[in-house]
Design a protein around this nucleic acid. Structure first.
Lengths: 203, 203
DNA sequence: GTCTATAAGAAGATAGAC
DNA sequence: GTCTATCTTCTTATAGAC
C-alpha cells in the first residue's frame, strides 16, 4: 500500500473533522499505522502535508470538472439534454448533484476542511468561493440562458435564476455537512424547491 | 474598564479569525494588555473563556430576537407592515437585514467563530443551524403565509418561498464573511434577487 | 522506510510576591 | 488583580540505529 498516499487520506479526514491546528502529526501517524517521525520521510513538515492535499484535490477537481461537466464552460452541451427533460428529470438531476457533493468521500471532506480553514488566508477563501459559489453559478447561468432561448422558461435574468436555483442547494448542503442526520429532511426540501422553482419559471 | 468583558471581546475576535485551537492564551492576554497568568484571575481556563462567549452571545441573541423581531414567532405583527410595502421597500428590508448580519460586530464575529467550530461538537452544530437556518426560515415562512393570505402573492408553498428568498441571502452573507471585498457585488445581486423574486411571486 | 531517543520550543496553567 | 518565575505536558522535528 502507498504510505505517502495514505498519509494524505488520513490527514484530510482529520483536518476535515478538527481543523489543521487541532490535528497533530502524532494523530496522523496513528491513523496511518506508523510513528510520527516516519512521516518526515514522506513529507518535510505538517504544512507540507496540508499543501499536498490542496494540490491533490486541485487535480481531482480539474478531472471531475472536465469529466462530469458539473461546472465549466460546457453548459452549451448540457442545455440540449436539459431543455427536453421534464420537471421530474430536473428533480432527479438536482438530487443527483446534491448526492454527489454530499457523499463523494473526498469532495465532502475537502469542503469541510475548506469551511474550517477559509478565514485563515486569502488563497483558501478564493478556492472555496470558486469551487462552491462562482463556478456552480457560472455553469447554471449558462444553462438557464439556453433554456430561456429555447423558450422553455420565462425570460428573466438567468444569473438570478441560477442564484435562486443553486442557493437552496448550497444551504441544504452546508446544513447536511453540519447535521448529517437531517439528510432526509434536506432531500424532501430540495425536491419541493426544484418543483416549485420549475413551476414558477415555466413558460 | 471592565477587564473581564474585554477578555471576551478580544477572545471572540481572535477565535473568529483563527479558530479556538489556533488562539493561545498569550495572544488573548496581549490583546487585552495584560500577561497570560492574569487571565486566570477572571476565567479558570481557556475553555471557560470560550463557554463564557457562548453564554454572552446567547443572551445577546435572545435580546435581539425579542427586540428587533428578526426571528421568532412574531411574524404575525410584521406581516401587516410587510404586506403593504412596495417592491422597493421589500428590497430595503432585505438589504437592511443583510447589513445588520454583516456589519454588527458581535453578530459577524460570532458567526465566523461558529463557522469554524461547527464540526467540533453537536451543540455548536445545532446552535449554528438554529440561528442561521431554522429560525430565519421559520420566521419568513410565517411572513409569506400571511402575505399569501392577504392575496399579495401567489398561493405557493410558503416554506419554499422562505427557502428561495432566504437561501440567496445566506449564500451572499457567507460569501462576504469569506471575501469582504465582494460586498458591493453581493449587494447588487441581493437587490436583483429580491426584485426578481418579488416579480415572480407577485399575484 | 520504520523505529527509539531526544532536542527545542510552545502552550496551558499554578505559586507566590507585590 | 497584575506580575515574574516556574511546572508540566504537548508538539514539531531531527538524529541515528536497524
Amino acid at each position: 500500500m502507498d504510505t505517502k498516499k495514505k498519509i494524505l487520506d488520513v490527514a484530510l479526514t482529520l483536518f476535515s473533522e478538527k481543523g489543521y491546528g487541532n490535528v497533530h502529526v502524532g494523530h496522523i501517524a496513528e491513523g496511518v499505522g506508523i510513528k510520527a517521525p516516519s512521516l518526515y520521510k514522506h513529507y518535510k513538515s505538517k504544512l507540507d502535508i496540508f499543501e499536498a492535499i490542496l494540490k491533490e484535490m486541485s487535480n481531482r477537481y480539474d478531472k471531475e470538472v472536465s469529466y462530469l461537466s458539473i461546472t465549466g464552460s460546457d453548459s452549451e452541451l448540457d442545455a440540449n439534454i436539459f431543455a427536453k427533460i421534464s420537471e421530474d428529470e430536473l428533480v432527479k438531476m438536482g438530487i443527483g448533484l446534491f448526492h454527489f457533493f454530499l457523499h463523494d468521500e473526498y469532495e465532502c471532506k475537502f469542503r469541510k476542511m475548506l469551511t474550517i480553514e477559509q478565514f485563515s488566508n486569502k488563497e483558501l477563501a478564493e478556492l472555496f468561493s470558486n469551487q462552491y459559489i462562482n463556478e456552480p453559478l457560472k455553469y447554471q447561468t449558462g444553462l438557464f440562458q439556453r433554456i430561456i432561448l429555447q423558450g422553455q422558461m420565462k425570460n428573466e435574468n438567468a444569473d438570478m435564476m441560477a442564484l435562486q436555483f443553486y442557493a437552496p442547494i448550497y444551504l441544504l448542503l452546508t446544513l447536511c455537512d453540519r447535521e448529517p442526520q437531517r439528510e432526509e429532511e434536506a432531500l424532501r426540501l430540495l425536491e419541493k424547491h426544484i418543483r416549485q422553482f420549475s413551476r414558477m419559471y415555466k413558460e
